[in-house]
């Protein structure tokens, strides 16, 4: 039995930023003279990587993709009012509790659709992306012919942009390291297919499970009704049906 965790719009707003951020970090790093020195441009297909103007143009193009997705996601959040990923009061404490439960110090709390630590990680990642977009746009404006800022402004703009790059990079590393933890692994397929095991949701995402059932207007005690709820939750339709509306 499966439950639909991420619709296509959400998977799209996960993978497009993932791709564009990868390109942005690679080309952004390439704004320093490192790829020639370290023979990266000798690797097959990467001859362009030491050309600062090519990497700058790619950086701009990938930035546009990221800005497009960010605007898309922000609008999606506000219109759908699905704030499951937005941090809540007490998330920090709850995250500590989740970590403590991993080493057997305490019980894991009842989780909602996202774990408290996922909500916090989202806040860090999203605000880094926002800061990078803002400072990046100012930097691109500064690069226009006829525009120049004071040396101090140029210096600090670069420092802030670089600082948030490091924060974003760390948050991505932490995000990937989270899947070393066995309990998190059933979450992985859902970002590809959108589906997650019902079994897993019932155990680890108790609050979410209750919400799904409450929405279906059913009593958890009633075994027959529960089966029915699972049947409703089970997604049998094609997922690609509204792909055209997003792209």
């Amino acid at each position: 039995m499966k439950i639909k965790r991420h619709n296509l719009a959400i998977r799209f707003t996960h993978w497009m930023p993932a791709l564009s951020i990868f390109v942005l970090i690679f080309t952004g790093f390439g704004q320093m003279p490192v790829y020639k020195r370290y023979f990266v441009d000798q690797l097959p297909g990467l001859g362009w990587s030491s050309n600062f103007l090519i990497t700058l143009n790619i950086h701009y193009a990938a930035a546009m993709v990221l800005i497009f997705i960010s605007a898309f996601y922000l609008t999606y959040l506000l219109r759908s009012k699905r704030f499951d990923i937005i941090p809540r009061r007490g998330d920090f404490k709850e995250s500590v509790q989740i970590f403590a439960s991993m080493v057997g110090l305490t019980e894991e709390p009842d989780n909602d659709k996202y774990l408290a630590e996922q909500r916090l990680a989202f806040a860090v990642t999203a605000s880094s992306v926002l800061a990078l977009i803002v400072t990046g746009l100012v930097k691109a404006y500064k690069n226009l012919p006829g525009v120049s800022f004071s040396p101090e402004a140029v210096f600090w703009l670069a420092q802030v942009h670089n600082l948030f790059t490091v924060i974003l990079l760390l948050s991505i590393i932490v995000h990937l390291l989270a899947f070393l933890i066995k309990a998190n692994r059933p979450l992985v397929p859902s970002i590809f297919t959108g589906q997650i095991d019902t079994e897993y949701v019932m155990h680890r995402h108790r609050k979410w499970w209750e919400r799904i059932n409450a929405r279906a207007g059913l009593n958890l005690e009633d075994q027959a009704a529960q089966k029915e709820a699972e049947a409703i939750a089970f997604d049998e339709d094609g997922m690609e049906s509204n792909a055209a509306s997003i792209g």
């Binding site: 719009a9 997705i69 996601y73 922000l74």
Partner: peptide, 14 residues
């Protein structure tokens, strides 16, 4: 254009 396109696409999608 990127943010404008993003808002429009999200409006359709939502």
């Amino acid at each position: 254009m990127a943010p404008v396109a993003g808002v429009l696409a999200a409006a359709v999608s939502t």
